[in-house]
Design a binder for these strands. Structure first.
Lengths: 240, 240
DNA sequence: CGATCCATTGATTCTTATCAAAATAGGTGG
DNA sequence: CCACCTATTTTGATAAGAATCAATGGATCG
């Protein structure tokens, strides 16, 4: 098993993220590490969850990116939410056994079953915060699509991704790497790929961000946060 | 206490709706009726829940309409979701004590505390289905804002409202009465009031719907459902 | 009757979509 | 290493959709 510690940069993103959301004790970390070690692989474009299907187990995304999507018969597609390492791909509740949207892999990656929180109580709080954040992200997406301009939508989404990746130790200061194409971005933002392209170019020329080779850098995350003026849920707990 | 029965048209919408979602036994119905009898009043424009506030009790909307909203500093407003009689205004979970959006009353009305499901087990299933539907509505809203045209958005939203009101016994065959103004509609649909007005007129002239005096009639709900081509969560349980 | 809220209309501008094509990059097999 | 293939980004020209600004009408209410 891999070593753990505050000065350790090789902690699994899943563990890093959940540990950012709530303090984890030893057994919880061990259980997560074991789950991660037994993770199953998937490949890009694979449908990880089918809409309307029964969800048997809660699943964690260990590596790679995915998206919750809904499609219309005429081919229009909406990405509801991006799923990043450490996120829940699916949540099995006694309440709500049916998947309300599909989950599609955007890259190759790995997932594992989420350890049962009744066996590892320290996980319960982390899972709860994770689910609360998920709802907050959905509301953010609605605000974005309903009331922000193309330019604002892009900035706001990239900031959200930066914030979320930072929880998993995969972004610092608005810089992160991403497998997103402009088309995926368009599907998430309710825009056309062409318009995303043009808007991105404007943002680059305005010096607001750079994006080359899958490496994104938001030049002034604080300014974006201020301009979009939206309060984000804060996570007050200490890191693992 | 008011009488109950299948041929009874005076059942409280709250009871009607929850009974549509899952079978209720006698004690559950009694508890709901008592809660409703003790309902508190609110008036239009009142902020029923403030964003970021701790939610103490789960609350049910007994009468009147409300909306979950988020605002930007510059005044832009997004209605995330309309709340109808029988809906939960707020859900108190041990997990998620913080309101992720404000709730504003759109009309005068009444609300009450939701009876504790641990005291009335029959309510548990109804509450669970209600929450599952809530998430589905959010996803529907995202699809609407991201990928539907103004014309489609209006039709789709009105259809959703019709379906939901029907659960509470307040709509039949796509006909219902509503306190919505075109401005509220605009805030929900990510459009301007002027554009909503024009789009509504086109829909009326096309014979798709009528809307006079707060009375809406969708002339061919089935056709709308087909065109927007979206699967809605079905409720399979029998009526109360 | 004035005040207010809401629906409606017109004229115009701005944003974003559409259609089509070219350029670029990455990967594969010969 | 090159030729080819595919996916992605970029560009240009044009059209459609929706916003904006401003004003008028209609109702309702005290």
């Amino acid at each position: 098993m891999k070593p753990l510690g505050k000065n350790n940069v090789t902690v699994e993103p899943v563990i890093r993220r959940l540990g950012s959301l709530a303090p984890l004790d030893g057994p919880a970390v061990t259980a997560l590490q074991e789950a991660v070690d037994g993770a199953a692989s998937f490949s890009a474009r694979q449908e990880l969850v089918r809409e309307g299907t029964e969800i048997q187990h809660s699943l964690l995304l260990v590596q790679g990116w995915a998206a919750r999507t809904r499609c219309l018969e005429d081919g229009r597609r909406q990405i509801i939410h991006f799923l990043l390492p450490g996120d829940f791909i699916a949540v099995a509740t006694a309440d709500r056994p049916i998947a309300s949207s599909a989950v599609t892999a955007l890259t190759d990656g790995k997932f594992c079953a989420a350890p049962d929180p009744s066996a590892f109580p320290a996980l319960r709080a982390a899972y709860a915060v994770s689910h609360a954040l998920d709802e907050a992200y959905l509301l953010g997406q609605i605000m974005r699509l309903g009331r922000l301009s193309a330019h604002e939508r892009i900035q706001d989404l990239l900031l959200e991704l930066s914030d979320r990746l930072e929880l998993a130790g995969m972004a610092q200061d608005g810089q992160f790497s991403t497998p997103l194409t402009q088309e995926m971005l368009a599907d998430a933002l309710g825009l056309t790929p062409v318009h995303v392209n043009r808007t991105l170019q404007q943002a680059r020329q305005a010096g607001e961000l750079s994006w080359r080779n899958g490496e994104v850098a938001l030049h002034d995350p604080r300014e974006i946060r201020r301009k979009v003026g939206r309060l984000r849920l804060r996570v007050s707990q200490p890191m693992v």
